[in-house]
Design a protein around this nucleic acid. Structure first.
Lengths: 125, 125
DNA sequence: ATAAGTGCTAGAGTTCACTCTATGTCAAAT
DNA sequence: ATTTGACATAGAGTGAACTCTAGCACTTAT
């Protein structure tokens, strides 16, 4: 089964523009061409899903490129790619903890907002 | 107790540039001036901490401005500010759930990376 | 009294991640 | 045979969030 760029756009919720931009940026070196036209296979979609996942969890595009390039390296040096992925997993775990702490702060501030407001206008004016 | 802009920069881990930028963008309408020089009080730091918290959890600057403006409104219309804060709390909760799902995907991909790699080069070349 | 240090503003520059435009090719439908 | 539609590229434009520069004011130390 193969897909055109617009079919991939539908499946991945990326715009056609974004897919071409990712390709331009070296994120999709695995995509085949037929007469210059991109031809996507199922395993390409899997790679793109992973790319989206990394992007959603805050990995910048140049880091994703590095990761993909390691994964595509001639020898079976998946190890380096795996290492990056495991490191990123730890980052995301930390990120969740940080966001949970921020959530607690927001909850605290929700309870203390009227007071902060009062402080502002009683002490300050 | 009052603070200069560079002391506030230290306390909040923002750069002096960023604090001035936030002020320019209307995020810090509560900051006093003495002969044109910004003078920060403890409750100002509390507001800035809240701003940082909102920023870290993905609220764009124009939304933070709207929130702050509601909070600073002449009448005791904290309600609108509170409403925004509660809505944002729900967004952050959703954000944590999304990130947890992404984390699961990453864990899955860590286990299947060697296989994805193999697929790529056996089917595809 | 001059030099250093900190503050101020206006506005230019940067980076990131798209997003769009202009222009062109090619295959299928009318 | 020409129109339509989907694909392609190069490169310009956008918006967000800083980040920095230039030039000036004011205070404090030598």
């Amino acid at each position: 089964m193969t897909y055109t760029i617009s079919q991939v756009a539908e499946k991945t919720n990326l715009s056609v523009y974004t897919i071409r931009y990712y390709d331009k940026e070296g994120l999709l070196p695995f995509v085949d061409r037929e007469n210059g036209v991109r031809v996507f296979h199922d395993q390409d979609i899997e790679w793109i899903d992973l790319i989206c996942c990394l992007k959603h969890t805050g990995m910048p595009i140049k880091d994703i490129r590095t990761f993909i390039q390691y994964c595509m390296d001639n020898d079976a040096v998946v190890d380096k790619g795996l290492e990056i992925l495991i490191q990123h997993k730890h980052n995301v775990e930390q990120q969740i903890r940080d966001t949970q702490r921020n959530l607690e702060t927001i909850e605290y501030k929700i309870n203390h907002l009227p007071q902060m407001y009062k402080e502002k206008f009683s002490i300050h004016h």
